[in-house]
Design a protein around this nucleic acid. Structure first.
Lengths: 107, 107
DNA sequence: GTTTTAGTTAAGCAAACACTTAACTATTGT
DNA sequence: ACAATAGTTAAGTGTTTGCTTAACTAAAAC
């Protein structure tokens, strides 16, 4: 299995800026849909659909309380993104090393 | 400026598994298009188009040599992804802490 | 100079995406 | 019971995406 396989569609889920903003919002704590929707200039169904996408890839979980649905961040799937992108850290780190060595050799 | 703004479409670029695989491939070093295309069951134009997308968000650079085009990984834009996702590290770290505290309190 | 080789660009297409409005379900308040 | 509130589901639409094949450009080889 390659490094890329199995990441499913978490990458696709966070490709949308609105969904990333929703995750950022939920990092403050769980919130009902209306409150989530408030900062966005977008219909409520649109937000609901974005939440469905996030739900499907398990980036959020749902809790029902009365007629409200509280959505909560579930960060675990982001580990896949973190792991994938972390691999590339060495490359910009390497570049820093090159610069560092250059500065050492040319004081 | 929110944490999400300015990430441009790097997130969209890496949403596609083929493009992630291409980046993985190029992490081994620069390669001409034909060599990049080889592991994929996809037409050459398809790969060329994927490379264009990666080029547009500056995740790869091009070098022309004879009739070959060598593509090289440029990891810098991935920092945006790294920075965004790193913020969430605390949340799965926090969960570990919660577990850690629980284990401490319940030896 | 014609033919390979390497690759991009053009045109077209089916599927997916990000919305919208309208209709629906379920809970709460009167 | 009835209306208001919270949210989802359905249906429709314009745009974007990921591919294809065919036509093109440019360098190399013969």
């Amino acid at each position: 299995m390659s490094r890329t396989t199995g990441n499913a569609d978490v990458f696709a889920a966070i490709a949308d800026p609105t969904r990333r903003a929703i995750l950022d919002l939920l990092s403050q704590g769980e919130q009902p849909v209306k409150q989530i929707a408030q900062p966005f200039s977008m219909s409520l169904p649109a937000i609901s659909q974005h939440l469905s996408v996030l739900c499907e890839v398990k980036l959020v979980t749902q809790r029902k309380e009365g007629r409200q649905r509280f959505y909560r961040l579930n960060p675990e799937p982001l580990k896949q993104v973190f792991n994938w992108v972390s691999y590339y850290e060495q490359f910009w780190q390497d570049k820093l090393d090159v610069l560092g060595n250059y500065l050492e050799d040319n004081p």
